[in-house]
Protein backbone atom coordinates (compact mmCIF):
# COMPACT_ATOMS: atom_id res chain seq x y z
CA UNK A 1 0.00 0.00 0.00
CA UNK A 2 1.35 3.36 -0.96
CA UNK A 3 0.44 6.98 -1.03
CA UNK A 4 0.76 9.24 -4.04
CA UNK A 5 0.16 12.96 -4.37
CA UNK A 6 -1.03 14.41 -7.64
CA UNK A 7 -0.57 18.14 -7.81
CA UNK A 8 -2.87 19.71 -10.38
CA UNK A 9 -2.93 23.21 -8.94
CA UNK A 10 -3.16 25.76 -11.71
CA UNK A 11 -4.62 23.19 -14.10
CA UNK A 12 -8.15 23.41 -15.47
CA UNK A 13 -10.63 20.88 -16.88
CA UNK A 14 -10.05 18.26 -18.08
CA UNK A 15 -6.43 18.00 -16.88
CA UNK A 16 -7.13 17.25 -13.16
CA UNK A 17 -9.48 14.45 -14.14
CA UNK A 18 -7.06 13.10 -16.74
CA UNK A 19 -4.21 13.05 -14.21
CA UNK A 20 -6.45 11.40 -11.61
CA UNK A 21 -7.48 8.71 -14.08
CA UNK A 22 -3.84 8.12 -15.01
CA UNK A 23 -2.90 7.72 -11.33
CA UNK A 24 -5.85 5.39 -10.68
CA UNK A 25 -4.79 3.21 -13.61
CA UNK A 26 -1.27 2.86 -12.23
CA UNK A 27 -2.26 2.47 -8.57
CA UNK A 28 -2.35 -0.82 -6.68
CA UNK A 29 -5.19 -2.08 -4.47
CA UNK A 30 -5.10 -0.30 -1.13
CA UNK A 31 -3.16 2.71 -2.43
CA UNK A 32 -4.14 6.21 -1.34
CA UNK A 33 -4.21 9.03 -3.90
CA UNK A 34 -4.10 12.64 -2.76
CA UNK A 35 -5.17 15.10 -5.45
CA UNK A 36 -4.40 18.77 -4.83
CA UNK A 37 -6.06 21.34 -7.07
CA UNK A 38 -7.78 24.67 -7.31
CA UNK A 39 -10.10 24.43 -10.34
CA UNK A 40 -13.66 24.44 -8.93
CA UNK A 41 -15.40 22.15 -11.50
CA UNK A 42 -12.67 19.51 -11.06
CA UNK A 43 -13.48 19.36 -7.34
CA UNK A 44 -16.96 18.22 -8.39
CA UNK A 45 -15.88 16.04 -11.30
CA UNK A 46 -13.32 13.94 -9.44
CA UNK A 47 -15.86 12.62 -6.89
CA UNK A 48 -18.11 11.80 -9.86
CA UNK A 49 -15.29 9.70 -11.29
CA UNK A 50 -14.63 8.08 -7.91
CA UNK A 51 -18.24 6.95 -7.80
CA UNK A 52 -18.21 5.64 -11.40
CA UNK A 53 -15.02 3.68 -10.78
CA UNK A 54 -16.20 2.21 -7.45
CA UNK A 55 -13.31 3.80 -5.56
CA UNK A 56 -13.47 5.02 -1.98
CA UNK A 57 -13.71 8.76 -1.37
CA UNK A 58 -11.94 9.36 1.94
CA UNK A 59 -12.22 13.13 2.19
CA UNK A 60 -12.54 16.48 0.45
CA UNK A 61 -10.82 19.33 2.28
CA UNK A 62 -11.07 22.95 1.21
CA UNK A 63 -8.84 25.86 2.07
CA UNK A 64 -10.10 28.91 0.29
CA UNK A 65 -9.82 28.24 -3.43
CA UNK A 66 -7.60 25.20 -2.94
CA UNK A 67 -8.93 21.71 -2.38
CA UNK A 68 -7.48 18.31 -1.50
CA UNK A 69 -9.29 15.10 -2.42
CA UNK A 70 -8.23 11.79 -0.88
CA UNK A 71 -9.13 8.56 -2.65
CA UNK A 72 -8.51 4.94 -1.72
CA UNK A 73 -8.15 2.21 -4.31
CA UNK A 74 -10.26 -0.69 -2.98
CA UNK A 75 -8.52 -3.82 -1.67
CA UNK A 76 -8.93 -6.82 -3.94
CA UNK A 77 -11.63 -9.40 -3.23
Amino acid sequence: MGEKTINVQGETCPVPLVETRKAVRKAKPGDILIIKGDHPPSKEEIPMAVEALDLELISIEEDGKRWVIKIKIPEEG
Partner: peptide
Protein backbone atom coordinates in the same frame (compact mmCIF):
# COMPACT_ATOMS: atom_id res chain seq x y z
CA UNK B 1 -20.37 20.81 -21.39
CA UNK B 2 -16.90 19.95 -22.64
CA UNK B 3 -16.51 16.95 -24.94
CA UNK B 4 -13.40 15.77 -23.09
CA UNK B 5 -15.29 15.60 -19.81
CA UNK B 6 -18.00 13.57 -21.50
CA UNK B 7 -15.52 11.14 -23.07
CA UNK B 8 -13.63 10.72 -19.78
CA UNK B 9 -16.75 10.07 -17.72
CA UNK B 10 -18.18 7.80 -20.40
CA UNK B 11 -14.91 5.86 -20.42
CA UNK B 12 -15.15 5.37 -16.67
CA UNK B 13 -18.58 3.86 -17.24
Amino acid sequence: VEGESITLHMDMR
